[in-house]
């Protein structure tokens, strides 16, 4: 006799708010933030940790939410791209993406911004091009906005270094 669906009472912090939801253990974190919380910024591009479109910050680290069980997030803190802006205002990094045209179809964009935010938060000084290229190498962009993404992140990094 096959096992029936198992549930898990999941509690975690989502974009700063404590939330609680009953999930199926098979559900990935990506499914839950999209389906149960309607935060659809993170996208499913591959479901196999190969594109980065689903990137979110988990306890401050950029991870593929498609390759994390929702239950694994229990007690942790998740920040999605929606959580980077405040009061409907894009963050500085989001603005550099807009101004540099660091996006085309936009499907990879949330992931790029999350991965870049992690990179910036952990940088010791101003990031050089090589560090940015390597740091974002898990986030593919089929539209090929790489040059512009590099500019955007580099500008954001310069801005932080000045501060």
């Amino acid at each position: 006799m096959k096992m029936e669906a198992q549930t898990f009472d999941l509690k975690f912090k989502l974009n700063g708010k404590e939330v609680n939801v009953l999930v199926d253990t098979r559900e990935t974190l990506l499914d839950v933030i999209r389906d149960s919380f309607g935060l659809t910024g993170a996208k499913k591009g591959c479901d196999e940790a190969a594109c980065g479109a689903c990137s979110v910050l988990f306890n401050g680290h950029a991870v593929c939410s498609c390759t994390m069980l929702a239950a694994e997030a229990h007690g942790g803190s998740i920040v999605t791209v929606e959580g980077l802006s405040s009061n409907g205002k894009p963050s500085f990094l989001q603005k550099t993406f807009m101004e540099n045209d660091a996006l085309q179809c936009g499907f990879c964009t949330s992931g790029q911004i999350i991965a870049a935010a992690f990179l910036l938060d952990n940088a010791e000084g101003e990031l050089d091009d090589h560090e940015i290229r390597e740091g974002l190498s898990g986030n593919v962009c089929r539209c090929g906005a790489y040059n512009k993404i590099l500019h955007a992140v580099s500008e954001a990094s310069r801005n932080r270094a000045v501060k």
Binding site: A62, V63, G138
Partner: peptide, 9 residues
């Protein structure tokens, strides 16, 4: 190893 998102996990 792999890419940064993998390395964080």
């Amino acid at each position: 190893i792999g890419h940064p998102l993998i390395r964080n996990r």
